[in-house]
């Protein structure tokens, strides 16, 4: 870990400005991802802006029947919120499938969306990795890639986004609200928030330098059976090999977003039209462009099987 300076931001705008003026600054929320990466010198900010004390830790109803979730709301609080549990069961279940109780107590909504990949080569600074050191190469291609992505991949990077929460947010059509250093605000639909790796796998979201997440907004609830099926080797405390977030309506229509397969929560609206026909039809469109490696080819089948189980469960 490199030495760094630290400040507590006094306001959202001040935080964004401080970050804009210093390319080597980073926001710190729960710190559960950032500090680990700093210890390994994968992230080397010289300045940390602590954004915990800005009153962004509330969950409020929006006028159109949705929920505005403050960026600093802890994963535990979000998962256990009465309205979330009642109307957005997918989100609550996805959160509880992630990490551990201790981590969820600390981890925040914005930090969770911005957590970085768990590709093992990304964590070893001796190894080439385009995401960590642009232009150095991708060790996972042709290497140990069991956990890596199967769809939306590029020749530069086959990493996944590891968040469980983000899968639910994507299926629920959440919108990320931000403030830019110049004070302007914008609302970014989850569909557009994370990027595919392309030639620039180190750029993971559409956020600009210093742009600060203030909240994530959920639209009014859409009902349906909300199922989060996380598949992993051990029963707990492991990232998803794949996960399926499904919202299935009584008529068999619905939505599905898949985790552990791509650089972003993977949802293909055209595939959802096939949901009433079943998992095979849906998955074949969802993963039509899959380019798995020898080691992670199983994920393609696994998505179909897990989706099949979710649809069966929804039918009850």
């Amino acid at each position: 870990m490199r030495a760094f300076t630290y400040e507590r931001a006094s306001s959202v705008e001040a935080a964004a400005q401080a970050a804009a003026g210093n390319r080597e600054a980073k926001f710190i929320a729960g710190g559960t991802n950032l500090l680990d990466l700093m210890k390994l010198e994968i992230e080397t900010p010289t300045h940390l802006i602590d954004v915990n004390g800005l009153g962004l830790d509330t969950i409020e109803a929006t006028p159109d029947g949705g929920l505005r979730i403050g960026a600093m709301v802890r994963n535990t609080d979000l998962a256990s919120h009465e309205v979330v549990r009642r109307d957005y069961g997918l989100l609550s279940r996805a959160l509880l499938a992630g990490a551990s109780g201790q981590l969820r107590n600390k981890a925040t909504t914005s930090g969770n969306l911005l957590q970085r990949t768990r590709c093992p080569y990304f964590y070893d600074t001796n190894q080439p990795c385009n995401k960590r050191t642009p232009g150095s190469g991708c060790s996972a291609i042709g290497g140990y890639s069991r956990q890596n992505a199967v769809v939306g991949v590029s020749d530069a990077c086959i990493a996944t986004h590891p968040s469980d929460m983000a899968i639910a947010m994507r299926a629920l059509d959440a919108v990320v609200e931000t403030v830019k250093p110049d004070g302007s605000k914008r609302a970014i639909p989850m569909a557009d928030f994370h990027r595919l790796p392309g030639d620039t796998p180190h750029i993971e979201t559409v956020l600009e330098q210093g742009e600060f997440i203030t909240a994530v907004v959920l639209p009014a609830p859409i009902g349906g059976k909300q199922i989060y099926r996380k598949v992993r080797d051990r029963a707990s405390y492991a990232f998803a090999l794949i996960s399926v977030g499904a919202i299935i309506q009584p008529d068999g229509t619905g939505r599905v977003a898949v985790g552990g397969v791509a650089h972003k929560p993977w949802r293909v609206e055209a595939a959802e039209a096939e949901l009433p026909k079943g998992a095979r039809a849906t998955a074949s469109i969802l993963l039509a462009d899959a380019r798995p490696t020898e080691q992670n080819r199983f994920k393609v089948d696994l998505v179909e099987r897990a989706l099949g189980a979710a649809i069966a469960e929804a039918k009850g």
Binding site: P120, Y121, D124, D233, R234, A235, F239
Partner: peptide, 16 residues
């Protein structure tokens, strides 16, 4: 050995 930490090398947890 690529998975050289306890996130990558999975030993059983209580739930297992």
């Amino acid at each position: 050995f690529v998975n050289h930490d306890l996130a990558g090398y999975e030993v059983p947890v209580h739930a297992d």
